[in-house]
Design a protein around this nucleic acid. Structure first.
Lengths: 123, 123
DNA sequence: CTTGCCTCTGACGTCAACGGTAGGTTTTAG
DNA sequence: CTAAAACCTACCGTTGACGTCAGAGGCAAG
């Protein structure tokens, strides 16, 4: 399939796909006249890339991890990198839960005027 | 205290504090000759700001929510805004959990050799 | 009083993940 | 065959949260 169809099916822009290629995240074969051609698995690959971006990984980090995902090539370094990023995501989840609880406390306070205004200076 | 001490105690840069003031997130009184002066609660306030930035809120959003946190002012709009941001954070947590599970699956694959995974050796 | 660190106000630089445009080629529909 | 739609490369623009630098003034110590 060509780039427009992949963009539609994966739910990203054409521009984003060319950017992914530029960053070394997504390879494309070329037609005789230079147009990018993708196979089926590219759809899932783009969705994975999007998921990792959503988790806060950078292009560089994703590029580092892709060989491991791709070929199941596993070095001690790549496994460590994967584990490191997983832990980073865990930490980020913990931070988000803390922030959410903090917001919940503010909401609680703002809906029950009886409780004192402790939240503003808590922690 | 002056800006340098607050920066140290809250763990942010002096530049960041001036930026927070510019965005209306953090007020400072001024000494006779124009230097910013902060009271104790500013330390916690900066940490709260950092937490909300970490949760993906923008300066504009934080600025909108601050009156609610500060003065316990509660309007239907502010409560709706708080709830909206809380829900956004919940959704973000769900996405992160999904991404983490996906990474875990990759890790699982790369560490179990019988699943057709090629283990590379360091060169 | 002067040395040296701290602070001030602009104002430009950065970085990431694209968006948008220009100017030209290729593919497809009628 | 032709016109529209899709594609190409190359490059500048955007946004947010600061970093960094310049040039000038403030403050405790020796």
């Amino acid at each position: 399939m060509r780039i427009g169809e992949l963009a539609d099916r994966a739910g990203v822009s054409v521009r984003a796909l060319r950017y992914y290629e530029e960053q070394g995240l997504l390879h494309a074969s070329r037609s005789g006249r230079g147009q990018r051609l993708y196979a089926e698995p590219a759809v899932d690959r783009v969705r994975l890339i999007q998921m990792l971006y959503g988790a806060g990984l950078t292009s560089r980090t994703i590029a580092d991890l892709m060989p491991c995902v791709d070929a199941n090539v596993s070095t001690p370094e790549s496994r460590a990198r994967l584990a490191f990023e997983r832990d980073r995501i865990d930490a980020q989840i913990a931070e988000l839960i803390q922030a959410r609880d903090r917001l919940d406390a503010v909401i609680e306070m703002s809906t029950s005027p009886e409780s004192g205004c402790v939240v503003a200076h808590a922690e």
